[in-house]
Design a protein around this nucleic acid. Structure first.
Lengths: 347, 347
DNA sequence: ATGAAAGCGCTAACAG
DNA sequence: CTGTTAGCGCTTTCAT
């Protein structure tokens, strides 16, 4: 058995409650005894027991992290660790810890969250994604349990604290960029259609086309899980269209890389024959060939602000509204102008 | 206040301890009362409180995860999330949770670990790296606290439970491969030199050279943090050598990508002018240009087995020895043969 | 300024 | 088979 508050109390000749007060740095304890107690603590190598404290306090200073159930893809994407780094830093600064949800299927994850919440393991939850009709979100709302969502809520946006980019605007700008380069046959390759992020980027894409007076073609929009097939399916589909697009807006760098790769295998070169702009600007976007033109969404900040947000909620009790993290466009070498007479922008 | 065991007891007309026994599915309770108690539980929506249980049991069913302090690089590398996925799956299967260490500096991390351990927050620890003279390792050993290390222990290898690849052999094979292709001027680009993994790969590289009767040249071995500079520094250094290497063994795919990129910018093409074999075989190794020849070290398994290992230790009390995860060589297009008369192996 | 005592919710002897 | 009781280690009234 480890050193407890009682051992310290005994050595310092005070009551356990006094030791507790010293730990909390209660001002009603005289400096003298504080010093004496602290000496006893370090002499014994005392360390407070978190579990006991949590039980008494009804608070653990632990934040639960919930990942989407399509975890395989999520884990593979550099998006995930970066956001985790942001969360970690935000938590650390306020002396909070992070508990990971495990579980592969949606049910397993749901159950895990219920255990975390009802089991009193966490003071708050961060949902690392936003999707439509999410059971977990509903559950947390019903119980009125503090949570922050990374991404734009699908419903009840006024009542939920979230951290997000302006994905509609970002996608609109990305599409605009392609339009300015002279492209009209522009496709959109999205990720998981149940994620609000995907929907937002799609509507930004549509808005840009509309404003430019370009008709949107159904066959130019693809939504699938291309990570594992490395974009093969998407590439084939695109090339089978009679009038294939000359440019693509791709919802994610890794997907973009897969598509570039597959198209190349089928003899279509980027950016010579097809221009691509993608999202996230992860580290390898810069290192790939061609280097990817990408929208940097400040992934780290997304995590950092989410951590700050939930901690703020827990400490003050009030729920800040949505926080929008700025994005910026990073032009590299995966797009070329197809205006008549323009120079090719190649690597 | 939430529903407690007492509420259930009252409704079911039994003592709290009986409810506790029903939760534990104690065989000494009659089916009748079990049913009655369970009915009461679901009627009230009872959920056991983890904290209280942990305090009484002196066990949390939580495993602490410790990442290296050079976290920036670590987080950026797809290695990290994949290993986490393995850990997560191994934990989930046994109903354990994962607590992340936060903290950027070595001191912060150390303090975090001490809090986890002495605070009773975790039953065991997984060190996600192995480095020489690690304070944390020493601390855990001194306290005789259960832990598993991912990577080969630098010291006391007989006394520590670990999960690792045979990195020496893997690097030897990778180097052999290049030698067989006719290369003699082979360089080695390692990562953090305090990581045992780096040392092992270096010695495998040296062993292969030695066996082939090739003198090792000091200037062919580079150790730096190339992630952020995208390999610029390494590329420059290599090209400044009078007789630059014709092939490289690179300790990590992401680094390899950075070097390929930088060399390309300086006019040196892979694999035409320089062959590269790297490690880890992360997803984008296949998608990059050229696709990287890489040693697949089964990252997921590394994590999965580590989780299994610590849980086994916790449940049985005995400490399994080292587990070696097999690796395999994945030949792609980043190397070419330079034997006289041989065909170039290009993409 | 400090001590005594109750209690956070659960488990585990010990009785019966 | 089930109830009683005493903790797990800490916090927090309520006294003094």
């Amino acid at each position: 058995m480890a050193i407890t508050i009682k051992d310290v109390a005994q050595l310092a000749n005070v009551a356990p409650s006094t030791v507790s007060r010293v730990i909390a740095n209660n001002p009603r304890i005289s400096e003298k005894t504080k010093v004496r107690v602290r000496k006893a603590m370090s002499k014994l190598g005392y360390h407070p027991n978190f579990i006991a404290r949590s039980l008494a306090n009804q608070s653990t200073r632990i934040i639960g992290l919930v990942m989407p159930s399509s975890s395989n893809d999520y884990y593979q994407n550099p998006f995930f660790p970066t956001i985790l780094q942001g969360l970690s830093e935000g938590a650390q600064e306020n002396h909070y810890s992070l508990l990971l949800s495990t579980g592969k299927t949606e049910d397993e994850i749901y159950e895990g969250v219920v255990n975390m919440v009802q089991g009193g393991m966490v003071d708050g939850i961060i949902l690392m994604y936003s999707r439509m009709n999410d059971h977990i979100l509903t559950y947390l709302r019903e119980r009125d349990f503090p949570f922050v969502i990374i991404g734009k809520p699908y419903d009840y946006i006024e009542e939920i604290t979230y951290v997000d980019n302006d994905n509609v605007l970002a996608a609109e700008q990305a599409t605009d960029y392609l339009i300015k380069l002279g492209h009209e046959r522009i496709g959109f390759i999205g990720g998981d259609v149940t994620l609000v992020m995907t929907l937002d980027r799609l509507s930004g894409y549509e808005r840009a086309l509309k404003r430019a007076g370009i008709d949107r073609r159904g066959e130019y929009t693809l939504h699938e899980d291309f990570l594992h097939e490395g974009g093969q399916a998407a590439a084939k589909r695109l090339l089978s269209i009679e009038e294939p697009p000359t440019a693509l807006v791709v919802s994610d760098d890794l997907m973009a890389l897969g598509i570039v790769h597959s198209l190349r295998e089928m003899g279509v070169r980027t950016p010579e024959e097809i221009s691509i702009v993608s999202f996230n600007n992860v580290l390898f976007s810069e290192l790939s060939l061609p280097a990817l033109t990408s929208v940097d969404i400040n992934i780290f900040d997304l995590g950092y602000q989410a951590a700050k947000g939930i901690i703020h909620m827990l400490q003050t009790g009030d729920a800040p509204a949505g926080t929008i993290i700025p994005h910026h466009f990073v032009e590299r070498h995966s797009c070329r102008s197809i205006k008549q007479g323009a120079m090719a922008m190649t690597y």
